[in-house]
Design a protein around this nucleic acid. Sequence first.
DNA 1: GTCTATATAATGATAGAC
DNA 2: GTCTATCATTATATAGAC
Lengths: 200, 200
Amino acid sequence: MDVDTGNVTGEAAPRRRNAASTREAILRSAKIAFTRYGYDGIGVREIAQGAGVTAMLVNRYFGSKELLFAETVESVFAEPTLLTNDAATLSRFVAATLAGDESDENDHVDGFLLMLRSVSNPRAADILRDSIERHFEQQLAALLPGPDSHERVALFLSLIAGFQLMHNVLDSAAMTRADPAALARRLGVLFQQLLDPAPA
Amino acid sequence: MDVDTGNVTGEAAPRRRNAASTREAILRSAKIAFTRYGYDGIGVREIAQGAGVTAMLVNRYFGSKELLFAETVESVFAEPTLLTNDAATLSRFVAATLAGDESDENDHVDGFLLMLRSVSNPRAADILRDSIERHFEQQLAALLPGPDSHERVALFLSLIAGFQLMHNVLDSAAMTRADPAALARRLGVLFQQLLDPAPA
DNA sequence: GTCTATATAATGATAGAC
DNA sequence: GTCTATCATTATATAGAC
């Protein structure tokens, strides 16, 4: 199983004998591999192969698979994605992104996929919970004024996670048979219901 | 790691030397173990131990771990849960069940937990997708008249799955800090939005 | 009908050479 | 800085005894 870090994307091969760039290459390979296969679904050998090195260097530079995963998660959730938008445009933006074709590289999607495919491992879940709380939930609650902000944030994230789970991970028939445009419309209504500070 | 099939629930120990009841005991242990730890998170040894037998009998009676999982999934999703209700009461019922204490045995919850914790494994995902489509989505779509029934079913299942993921699997801080009553209220509003045949 | 013992393969991690 | 070789553990699955 090759990971295909995408040597097409940039810097070709001359990376050997450089600690910093080797570390980066491993981290990049790990991000792709963990996102695609989940924490339990990929081994350090394959991650190393995707970076063009041997498995030994993974432990050399990151200590263990678990520590590599922690740094991968941190790296993915550190870059702001959904939070860059204001509450007014957020619902449409997220709905369109989720329901749209998964062809182009949408980093928002990737962050959630990494979570969905790894959360069944308890140690990975601990790491994910901590990172998501630090980078997501607090800022998101501040972005949603009005009553029940905590509850609305929880449901907002639940809906994103659940949609991606059914659509990209389980690939459920209900999603497959659904019309993308209608899906985006219905999804947008739900998001607005959560983001608008209407009392309930 | 013991699975604790609950020898308290019924038939105590005198089950030895009986093919049918041994099969049942293994299946019951598998249901608990797969739901709690996911497909990759538990081994046949531990499942067998939870049934009071050795690992060999698992393969003897079910062929392989994968076939045991398939039969477990089928067994869990075969019993009707959400579908017993009519559309009118469904939104309140599901919202209250999800947001309520997870202390009592709610089988609805268990079915989704089994899915959430195993879907990261591709072979398990195939099994789950097939079973869910056969037992859930078709009947659910028939229960939801009005426009965009496929899309609304997809979002209905997404919301349930996502909520359980954030609440019971990831145990996210947004969920932990949320007020259960307010959560149930907001959740109910979202479900009604999907179940009511209002055009969009 | 169920067991002990084992085959085979894969995993994460490490030792030591260059 | 990176490699080859290996250790220790664990996994599923099977062979053969009783």
